[in-house]
Design a protein around this nucleic acid. Structure first.
Lengths: 145, 145
DNA sequence: TTCGGTGCAAAATCTTTGCATCAAG
DNA sequence: CTTGATGCAAAGATTTTGCACCGAA
């Protein structure tokens, strides 16, 4: 049985009010303003719990720490390969790809994770719209999973 | 300038011959059969280098260690949420989703990562085709990124 | 000979966990 | 009271790195 905690409420509310997608570390540093003695462990435990409850989503970008999203409605994200930020994407749903996947898989397809890679507006402007400042690593990683 | 190394060649060849997608640890344990003193650091360094060269791909599943794929042709993967294995998927390309993404993003879309989640044939048979043995965590994570 | 690669171990990064104590129910 | 939540610190899991030595070119 789950008990109320001010720390958990803070984390939920903080995430709900953020349009970016902070990491545990960022959430922790903000929470410290209100709870000077809060620990990172508490932040991680609450994030895990909130995710279980379906009140937040964890975004694993495959580079660096996970990010967290207080918006649980279905939507996709772009990871800016220049600055690393994780940005909401308004886009029609693409659940039809599950059906495509099913035809080629001898088992059950239950869902998908999709992350787009690209360059955000800010970074485009800052870099004078160069062809692609992608690290080779990502450049190679991008097509085909 | 890159110099030849037997260790790197072994890793490349090993990956090319695997249809599953081993982790660095698994590659390491296999390499030890041929190079009893090889170190995990060497494995990681060579994997990073091979990825840079575009000769292998890194698959970040968001749970546990990264997996590596010696097949660099465009294709997608299913992660079995029961046994954790990463399985190749034959499926028509879905690059059109980049265009959908572009219309909703004020910046450049350069590519995407897609991972499907589901249950592989083996696990379905082993578990008598239960509705879904998904951990709640994944259940929540699955729809919408 | 030169300089990239290796083995080894230490460190870095990110996340989880044991435990005594605190506080919600 | 009872039991979940917290703070703290230690430990875990994964990956990276410094350094002295080895080996490819």
């Amino acid at each position: 049985m789950i008990k109320y905690s001010r720390q958990r409420e803070y984390i939920r509310d903080f995430l709900a009010g953020q349009k970016d997608h902070p990491t545990a570390e960022t959430i922790y540093r903000n929470a410290q303003k209100e709870f000077p003695n809060i620990s990172l462990g508490t932040v991680y435990r609450n994030l895990a719990q909130l995710e279980q409850l379906g009140e937040i989503k964890k975004l694993s970008t495959g580079q660096g720490p996970d990010h967290f999203d207080g918006n649980t409605s279905p939507h996709y994200h772009v990871i800016c390969t220049t600055c690393g930020s994780v940005i909401d994407l308004e886009m029609e749903n693409i659940n039809h790809i599950n059906i495509l996947a099913k035809t080629g898989f001898d088992g059950e397809i239950e869902g998908h994770f999709v992350y787009f890679y690209g360059t955000c507006k800010n970074c485009l402007e800052r870099n004078g719209r160069q062809p692609s400042a992608l690290p080779q690593t990502l450049e190679n990683a991008i097509h085909g999973q």
